[in-house]
């Protein structure tokens, strides 16, 4: 295994949403490190907090959410900074330039009233990677070409509604890559696309990663994709990371009862995780989460301590972490 040169460290992150119904404790002490040049995956059922975690990295938690606690250490070539303490205007300069996003739903992420060329150019001009709009429009064609958009000279003048789903996603990826970021956070970049296009987009991401030595944080429902794309994977459950390790470690030797269930539940790794038939019970309500281990109401190994105390993430073998009382005391 390569030695890990950290580029991003998330430390003890807590995020709450203050809704009318009560306080949603969405992210409950998440810690992980992303190494430079790797593809790091976040997996878990719907609503477990993948999107919120990824957005919190650059402090993009939507109303009525609040980051309660934590540190996001970003390693620049010149030293470390805690993104959560950075003033808003400095943070803005990092978003989209050094840490870029690819959103889940490309159709909604693009402004319908502007051409995609404009939106790509805008992203570059705002970060001063290209000084003039005129130049930026010309560069936008190159950007589209690099994401394998067919007929980029023509598409650059197209409005989002004139493009197919796959082409919209390519445009969103193009926007993400336009400033040659160091980290790209791809939030289910293919969930709205059909299978063949999914494969093409994934090939594209892999190619870009190899060419540009990009660090990718990939969020997905899809265990097949994890196996195919990722170097390391973190499994999330109800706002916690329950297991973390290399893809080999987690797939060949799952430790956490939830991960085991997850892999059992998905005999075909290409299916989406919507509901886990193999694990009885439902995802807990995050306003009144179960005390102790949040998984205990659904776990078949539950012990007394599980209901009282929350298990911490501990390293069982080199690089393989799990948060479960079965493995620690």
């Amino acid at each position: 295994m390569e030695i890990c040169k950290p580029i991003l460290e998330v430390k003890d992150l807590y995020v709450n949403f203050y809704t009318y119904a009560g306080i949603v404790k969405a992210i409950d002490g998440v810690t992980f490190t992303v190494c430079e040049g790797e593809t790091f995956c976040l997996v878990g059922e719907t609503g477990c907090g993948k999107t919120v975690t990824s957005r919190a990295i650059t402090k993009l938690v939507p109303e009525p959410g609040r980051i309660e606690k934590g540190e996001i250490i970003y390693h620049t070539p010149y030293g470390k900074i805690n993104l959560l303490e950075l003033p808003e205007d400095k943070l803005r300069e990092i978003r989209g330039k050094e840490i870029a996003y690819i959103f889940q739903d490309p159709a909604a992420a693009l402004d319908p009233l502007y051409t995609i060329g404009y939106q790509i150019a805008e992203t570059m001009v705002e970060h001063k990677t290209v000084p003039k709009w005129k130049e930026a429009f010309i560069k936008a064609i190159d950007v589209l070409r690099s994401v394998l958009m067919p007929d980029p000279e023509k598409r650059v003048k197209a409005y989002p509604h004139e493009l197919s789903g796959g082409m919209k996603q390519r445009s969103v990826i193009g926007i993400g890559l336009s400033n040659q970021p160091r980290i790209i956070i791809a939030d289910e970049p293919t969930s709205y696309l059909d299978v063949t296009i999914q494969a093409q987009i994934m090939d594209l991401l892999r190619k870009l990663k190899n060419e540009k030595r990009l660090t990718i944080i990939l969020i997905t429902h899809n265990m097949g994709l994890v196996a195919e794309m990722c170097d390391r994977v973190a499994v999330m459950y109800a706002g916690n990371i329950v297991e973390l390790g290399t893809v080999e470690q987690v797939f060949k030797n799952p430790l956490h009862p939830y991960t085991k269930g997850l892999l059992r539940a998905v005999p075909n790794p290409l299916t989406k995780i919507e509901r886990l038939e193999a694990i009885p019970g439902t995802v807990p309500n995050l306003i009144y989460p179960p005390p102790g281990c949040r998984f205990h109401p659904r776990c078949s190994y539950t012990m007394d301590i599980c209901k009282r105390e929350k298990p911490r993430l501990v390293e069982i073998e080199p690089g393989h972490h799990v948060a479960c009382w079965l493995y620690s005391r």
Binding site: Y101, D105, T123
Partner: peptide, 24 residues
């Protein structure tokens, strides 16, 4: 809207975000 959220993620300044929101 999502495109404003994405605008923030793209690192657009507030004045630009306002422009997108207002035009829509």
């Amino acid at each position: 809207a999502d495109y404003i959220e994405f605008g923030k993620a793209r690192g657009l300044r507030k004045s630009r975000l306002m422009r997108h929101a207002l035009k829509n």
